[in-house]
């Protein structure tokens, strides 16, 4: 076991970072370096695999094994990598276009398979690298270069896809929430199985301020809630607001008002196998109910790669072949002398 301590600097490559000044990706990169140092997996035991898009440039800025691949396929490439070399810790970086449009199929199947990788979904609701087309997470009616009159389609909500694909880990953060980002990235790394982290990220050039409704300093405390396992679901500047159960649904209340007390406020259980409440929490959007950040779901389940290794071990022990030749000789053969 490697006992060396690592600092965030150990994970930084010597390449100049080429994202636009003010891009949310800078903060996310810093949070990732910090989370990696906190978890302590050595850089040479770490692989970072990305698709195509602005955010997918990230592997070049890591002093780890890295692979900047092709559009949409990072999840499939990361899957093969992890199955082939399970000793490595694998991070997959995608944007909303890479992960949910061209790579949508690989995304849901990686989650369903529960391959042990950490998938970071950097969601800026726009195609930046191709200079400003709407993405599968752009809201209905969104005006862009490829939707000059507004889109006529509904967006994906990434969390909903994760739950639809029976995912066991989902967390969300915002580029500007450095502490939460480091916390959820660390939790994602520690979770065995597919960990999906949605990072709401601002594109300063093509979609500046898209997350302002929730990220504005003025309103952020009232429009977001930081969920932590085992803690009360409280939010607001004074932490005087909370989430309570209202039939099968959730409701935001003010403590001490309308007869609600602290006892009524729900305690977050990220580990409960049922995803019913997790889904409701993940679907909150900052309007009626605050947008949830933090680890929303973190449930233990067998990972694909562990199961493959277990099967290999079991079958090998049972059949006991030591080579191709011994396997073939155990079948139908005849000898010519």
């Amino acid at each position: 076991m490697d006992t060396q301590q690592y600092t965030p600097a150990n994970y930084k490559s010597d390449q100049p970072v080429r994202w636009c000044p003010g891009c949310g990706d800078h903060a996310i990169l810093n949070s990732l370096h910090k989370a990696m140092a906190a978890v302590g997996v050595p850089p040479h035991k770490t692989a970072v695999i990305s698709g195509i898009g602005c955010s997918s440039r990230l592997p070049y800025y890591m002093n780890t094994y890295g692979f900047h691949t092709i559009h949409g396929r990072a999840a499939a490439i990361a899957t093969g990598f992890k199955v082939a070399n399970p000793e490595m810790t694998v991070w997959q970086i995608s944007g909303d276009g890479d992960g949910l449009a061209i790579g949508g199929n690989h995304f849901i199947h990686a989650v369903r398979r529960n391959i042990d990788i950490n998938m970071l979904l950097l969601n800026n609701k726009i195609y930046g690298l191709t200079k400003g087309q709407y993405s599968p997470t752009s809201d209905r009616g969104f005006i862009s270069k490829s939707s000059p009159y507004g889109t006529t389609e509904d967006p994906f909500i990434p969390a909903e896809l994760v739950f639809g694909a029976r995912g066991n880990f989902f967390a969300r953060t915002i580029d500007v929430e450095l502490g939460v980002s480091q916390e959820v990235l660390t939790a994602a790394a520690l979770h065995k199985g597919t960990s999906v982290v949605e990072l709401l990220q601002n594109c300063v050039i093509y979609n500046n301020g898209i997350h302002n409704f929730i990220t504005d300093r003025e309103n952020r405390a009232d429009r977001t809630i930081h969920l932590e396992h085992g803690k009360k679901m409280l939010f607001g500047k004074e932490l005087n607001r909370g989430l309570v159960q209202n039939g099968f649904l959730l409701k935001a209340v003010e403590i001490g008002k309308d007869g609600y007390t602290m006892d009524d406020v729900l305690v977050h259980d990220a580990h409960t196998p049922s995803n019913f409440l997790h889904q409701q929490l993940a679907m909150m959007d900052g309007h009626e109910l605050p947008l949830a950040i933090g680890v929303i779901r973190d449930v233990a389940a067998p990972s694909y790669n562990e199961e493959v290794d277990r099967q290999v071990k079991e079958v090998r022990a049972k059949k006991g072949f030591d080579s191709l030749r011994s396997m073939i000789l155990a079948g139908e053969t005849w000898e010519v002398k």
Partner: peptide, 15 residues
């Protein structure tokens, strides 16, 4: 596509 891509990942991983 995932077939070839998973293989490329496995190749990078050393298989």
């Amino acid at each position: 596509i995932a077939g070839v891509c998973s293989a490329i990942g496995a190749s990078f991983a050393g298989n």
